[in-house]
Nucleic acid binder design. Structure first.
Length: 806
RNA sequence: GCCGGCGUGUCGGAAUGGCAGACGAGGCAGACUCAAAAUCUGCUGUCCGAGAGGGCGUGUGGGUUCGAGUCCCACCGCCGGCACCA
């Protein structure tokens, strides 16, 4: 058969779509499979080869599942709100709606041309009001349940994008969108209380099938620590200074305390502080630093002693100095610490620099050189003296603190609440109203969606105001509670809002009564397998798990965890081994590959290029190799025979087993390699039967659906204009006979003293004596045994013979 | 510093404790061709050897085992995440 991919790929794409074979059927009796990929942000650049790799895994699984008789939901949509579109809108003075629609059309055509088997009847667009109505609805539910609050604190702010960013959006001190340095500003911000779900997000990880690196990354991000809160007092004032510590057992070693520069007690007692001017100067110095700079200056500790305030250690009444220093953060724990220089390196450095005493409470190190953080016998520690392990001494101290009422066990999380408003136009309006009488009131549910109004000018204000603030007709409203004049919130939701629940909408995308019908949720959810990028592990993945846990708690969904299994594709690097980027000029456009080699070649290549989860550089010549493979597959029709040579039987069964298993384990590269090996075997054997060829095509079909369908329909003698009802794409997945995956005669390696000396052919069921005798009869083996004393003979059936000689 | 992952030919990468380097790419040689491309065939870890054959080989050093790329211990290096987190 001639392999004319330009003709056959669009042909089958159209026939499959016309036949509607990829439509998921609600409530079908078949077992369900919900396969999910991260829907794209429709950027102007179009699809990236990374998208192809990310989607190809679940694409192959979904196609295999259909062939295995599953009712498959494999949907796609567009995560369409976001800054890049808005910035482009400002630059070109075009409405973001127009840009978004154009980009979506481009993505849609591109994804279709690759032949992905999405259910196109369920496409969603997060920027359409029939979708964001429900994003706002969930937000209102969060608000009703006290998980939305407003707070004026130091926030991450990107001066270039002019928006407040969440912690997740400013990892490494860089803006997620434009990569400029993030600064800290005090601002009034809406927060979602994700910290209230920290523990559930952590323990939920034990109930799902995530790869270890993803699990660990989430665990690190949540950052749970267990320890204790202890109340110190301030000498002469009736004031508690609460600290958090993971080592309450070292309380007797506390020789000073440190407060974060922003700690409120400093202002409260400003009149008692002797060196307030110096302190103000130090605070101003700290405020100038970005969070990034502040956490980089690990070596040289800075700080200042607070004159006039003195703390009292509650366990022994010792009076100790209080410092302020920027190595203590206001955002973690209580913003103040007890310093134990003998057993904490940071405190040790600080104490050494500022001449504070260092008291050893755990024996075992040399505290004149550095802090000792290991285990050892407790000394100078009152009730703890003599204890030798950390666990016991912490337990004992907690008991002691409890009795005295000066401390209690507690936990802390690194994860912070989710700063949720953006001072931008192209996002979901936040459905809240500021009423001078009633305070903050939610927009009534029946008034949702709160539509994004048209504006002339998308440019955000210099004063950090959303473009929406300029539209009086939007801003001015009546309070739903008291009916008086009120003002709408003018900020919008962040990029991550729409994607935090989109997988639920696919289940029932056209519902205008609910975000999704509960029966359909019960039928389809949870997602069985979700593939996406590592970059979303501490962003989208954690946000969407949070929303889903919340929806579960209020009874809206059937499970607390949305995704049963998660996997992640490795990056495709440029041919030079660097990350693909426009500036380096090493970007490969997937559509160029479709144009030049065909979609089937592209699909095979992205899965064959290496281990699915690892990064691998693009190689044009390897792409050609995949194309050659498909050409050779098409050539099989030239060597058809009535029956396959007998030598192929085992090879066929082995390959069915290997491909079936490898797909499940995401070892797509070895699955394809097995098909290549079988192809080589077929050509070596010289001919193949029609039935065996169909089996081969079925195995290859999830990877290269177009060429296999074309060959199959040709074998069936179908004409181009004929209506097809038995697509190979929907045919039954081949099964294998385990007994036939092994040859009758097997080749067994023979070792002498663990070194390979030859191989022998023996029957698969041969017993040990036969195997050993056959091995000894081998000339080369015999030459190594000659004149030696046989000490031990080993036969591992079907694997190996080993003679140990002296 | 802590957590996770990984070190295998020229390259991408294969190997439930059992013939290291499957499969693909690249390279070399040959066939076809006026020629090139395409295609097909063979070879392709390394050292010694004319050859048969043999030695050495999976980051380094030890160990367990009849047998280790794979398991254990120590170290070195790379990648990713977290990070003055108390």
């Amino acid at each position: 058969m001639r392999y004319d991919f330009k003709k056959i790929e669009p042909k089958w794409q159209k026939k499959w779509e016309d036949a509607g074979i990829f439509k998921a059927v609600d409530f079908s009796d078949k077992p369900k499979f919900y396969g999910l990929v991260e829907f794209p942000y429709p950027s102007g650049a179009g699809m990236h080869v990374g998208h192809i790799k990310a989607y190809s895994s679940i694409e192959v699984i979904s196609r295999k599942r259909r062939m295995q008789g599953y009712n498959v939901l494999f949907p796609i949509g567009y995560d369409a709100f976001g800054l890049p579109t808005e910035n482009y809108a400002i630059k070109t003075n075009t409405h973001p709606r127009i840009i978004t629609d154009k980009n979506i059309e481009k993505f849609s055509n591109q994804m279709r041309s690759v032949g992905f088997s999405f259910d196109w009847s369920r496409v969603i667009d997060t920027s359409k009001d029939d979708y964001y109505k429900w994003t706002q609805w969930i937000f209102r539910k969060l608000f009703d349940h006290g998980l939305v609050f407003r707070d004026k604190t130091l926030v991450n702010y990107c001066p270039s994008c002019k928006v407040v960013l969440s912690n997740e959006d400013s990892q490494g001190g860089k803006c997620d969108i434009c990569h400029s340095d993030v600064i800290q500003l005090p601002k009034d911000v809406w927060y979602l209380k994700i910290t209230e779900y920290a523990d559930k997000l952590l323990t939920g990880l034990d109930t799902v099938d995530y790869p270890e690196n993803i699990r660990q990354q989430e665990v690190n991000w949540i950052g749970k620590s267990t320890g204790a809160f202890v109340d110190f007092t301030i000498n002469g004032i009736d004031e508690k200074l609460e600290i958090y510590t993971t080592r309450p057992d070292t309380l007797y070693g506390v020789t000073f305390m440190v407060m974060a520069p922003e700690h409120p007690l400093i202002d409260k007692y400003a009149d008692r502080i002797g060196n307030m001017a110096d302190i103000e100067a130090y605070r101003a110095e700290c405020a100038k630093k970005t969070e990034f700079e502040r956490t980089q200056l690990v070596k040289d500790k800075t700080g200042l002693k607070i004159e006039g305030l003195e703390a009292v250690n509650p366990v022994n009444g010792t009076k100790i100095p209080i410092f302020i220093a920027d190595y203590v953060m206001m955002g973690y724990g209580t913003g103040a610490i007890m310093a134990v220089p003998a057993h904490d390196q940071r405190d040790w450095e600080f104490a050494t620099k500022f001449g504070v005493p260092i008291i050893e409470v755990i024996k075992g190190g040399d505290i004149s050189k550095e802090a000792y953080t290991g285990d050892g016998e407790m000394v100078n520690s009152g009730v703890l003296n003599g204890l030798t392990n950390k666990k016991d001494s912490i337990a004992k101290m907690l008991e002691f603190l409890g009795e005295k009422g000066i401390g209690r066990a507690g936990v802390q999380f690194k994860m912070k609440d989710w700063a949720f408003n953006r001072q931008r136009y192209w996002g979901e309006p936040i459905p809240l109203i500021h009423c001078p009488k009633c305070g903050v009131v939610g927009v009534p549910y029946e008034e949702l969606p709160l539509r994004l109004p048209d504006v002339e000018d998308f440019e955000p204000g210099e004063d950090g105001e959303s473009p929406l603030a300029k539209i009086d007709s939007f801003v001015n409203c009546t309070c739903p509670q008291c009916g008086g004049p009120a003002k709408r919130e003018t900020d919008t939701m962040p990029q991550w809002a729409g994607s935090s629940w989109y997988f639920l909408r696919y289940v029932d995308p056209h519902n205008d009564k609910a975000f999704a019908d509960r029966k359909k949720i019960d039928y389809w959810m949870p997602v069985d397998w979700y593939n996406g990028g590592m970059e979303h592990v501490t962003r989208h993945l954690i946000y969407s798990r949070f929303w889903h846990h919340f929806l579960y708690d209020i009874g809206e969904v059937n499970t607390s965890e949305p995704y049963m299994k998660r996997s992640a594709q490795g990056l495709i690097l440029g041919p030079d081994g660097d990350k693909m980027s426009k500036s380096k000029g090493n970007v490969v456009d997937p559509l160029d590959i479709v144009e030049q080699y065909g979609a089937d070649t592209l699909r095979i290549y992205v899965l064959f290029m290496g281990d699915y989860a690892s990064a691998a550089p693009w190689s044009d010549s390897s792409v050609k190799g995949c194309r050659r493979f498909l050409e050779r597959v098409a050539g099989l029709t030239e060597i058809l025979a009535d029956a396959s040579p007998a030598s192929l039987e085992t090879a066929m069964h082995k390959t069915i087993k290997k491909v079936s298993e490898d797909i499940e384990a995401q070892k797509f590269n070895t699955a394809i390699a097995a098909l290549m090996t079988l192809l080589n075997d077929i050509y070596k054997a010289g001919s193949i039967s029609k039935d065996d060829l169909v089996t081969f095509l079925k195995l290859l079909s999830p990877f290269a659906p177009h060429v296999t369908e074309e060959i199959y329909q040709g074998l069936m003698g179908r004409a181009d204009d004929e209506e097809i009802t038995d697509f190979l794409t929907m045919s039954e997945w081949p099964s294998y006979d385990p007994a036939k995956t092994v040859d009758d005669m097997i080749e067994v390696g023979v070792q002498v003293n663990g070194k390979f000396r030859g191989t022998v052919q023996i029957a698969r069921e041969a017993d040990k004596d036969t195997a050993l005798a056959t091995a000894k009869a081998n000339d080369r083996v015999a030459s190594f045994l000659e004149g030696k004393k046989l000490v031990k003979e080993i036969y591992v059936p079907g694997k190996i013979v080993n003679f140990v000689v002296k």
